[in-house]
């Protein structure tokens, strides 16, 4: 078998001004994981190559790194599967300060977890003698989030974190979902209110990198969506993100008279989202409105009503029934 090129990012602050790619050549042994290969490089070619690893069975979360541009666990990856044109590119995770080679500073990641009160707040009056009861269905609501191994793959590839390091980030939000939906937790509303602030659940832009890179069932994007559903269900809507969702409901469902019927009313969405009585908010959307009017790009003033809208209206009239049926 031909040797594969491993292009590995190297950086040593004592010597280098910035990271560079070093080429190693290695024949990939049959069935070898990417971690096996990196270990072989370290142990037989260059002992100074620096990275983290421990369990090599995808449960400790140590060995996440960017492989061909995207974060993944080296131990969970068959090396042969990631060779592109005879080469694999290996770089440190993104959105974290570099320490050396593939090792990054994880403190910002663990700090984000700290911010969501990542522990159960049980009812103080509970009985201690036995376990608290939880139905199988309630367990299922928190099972996926509970599989997170804190590898930070989601954090590494999160698009929002690239532009805003204050964002809570995917893992912390998934961790928060695990408590918001935990039938044993007594701080549901407090948690949702906190998570509804700027930097919280509504700041996620759905790039879905987290759900794609996550090596477990935690899949943060889906947990964030569940958090938003919880916020809407508990009517914690005093923010632009939640009002934006309400605007969809009102214009597509026609639940507010004259606003729409089956389609979005794009004139209504921004005004409703910033809030009708939010002067600063309204002012902030005027320039784009003006620009669009000048070009004739502004949506028609009268809302578009689809044919057979009655069918859609009938569905929205049973809005709460749909929610109940979904929870079943």
């Amino acid at each position: 078998m031909a040797k594969t090129k491993f292009l590995v990012s190297r950086y040593d602050a004592a010597r280098d001004t910035k990271p560079y790619l070093q080429e190693f050549r290695l024949e990939i042994p049959q069935g070898a994981t990417l971690l096996d290969c990196i270990n072989l490089i370290k142990w037989t070619q260059d002992g100074t190559l620096t990275y983290r690893m421990s369990c090599r069975s995808a449960i400790c979360g140590s060995c996440s790194m960017k492989v061909n541009g995207h974060a993944r666990l080296a131990c969970k990856t068959q090396a042969a599967d990631v060779v592109i044109d005879g080469a694999v590119t290996i770089e440190p995770m993104g959105n974290l300060p570099l320490i050396r080679d593939l090792a990054v500073d994880l403190e910002p990641f663990f700090d984000s977890i700290d911010r969501v009160k990542p522990y159960l707040v049980p009812d103080e009056s509970r009985q201690w003698k036995r376990e608290m009861l939880q139905s199988h269905d309630d367990y299922r609501k928190i099972e996926d989030a509970s599989t997170c191994i804190m590898c930070a793959s989601c954090w590494s590839d999160c698009n929002v974190l690239e532009v805003d390091p204050r964002f809570l980030g995917p893992a912390a939000l998934a961790k928060a979902q695990r408590f918001v939906h935990d039938s044993r937790d007594s701080d549901t509303i407090g948690r949702i209110e906190f998570l509804s602030r700027v930097t919280g659940m509504w700041d996620c832009t759905h790039c879905a990198e987290c759900a794609t890179r996550c090596p477990t069932d935690a899949k943060p994007l889906f947990r964030i969506k569940e958090l938003r559903t919880a916020a809407m269900t508990h009517k914690i809507t005093n923010n632009n993100g939640a009002r934006h969702v309400l605007a969809f409901r009102e214009s597509v469902g026609g639940t507010v008279p004259g606003i729409g019927g089956g389609m979005l009313n794009e004139n209504y969405i921004p005004v409703r989202s910033v809030g009708f009585f939010n002067l600063d908010g309204i002012l902030s959307i005027i320039p784009v409105g003006v620009r669009m009017i000048i070009r004739g790009k502004n949506p028609p003033i009268l809302p578009h009503i689809i044919d057979k809208f009655g069918e859609v209206r009938a569905m929205f009239r049973r809005f709460n029934d749909y929610r109940k049926e979904y929870r079943k």
């Binding site: 559903t229 969702v245 597509v252």
Partner: peptide, 26 residues
């Protein structure tokens, strides 16, 4: 399709997941 509704764009999915899927099924 003049009789088709909005797909929900992810927003209605978050508000009411089953309703959103039903809209698209329609």
């Amino acid at each position: 399709m003049k009789d088709a509704s909005c797909c929900g764009a992810g927003a209605i999915q978050e508000d009411n997941p089953l309703l959103a899927d039903a809209l698209n099924a329609r």
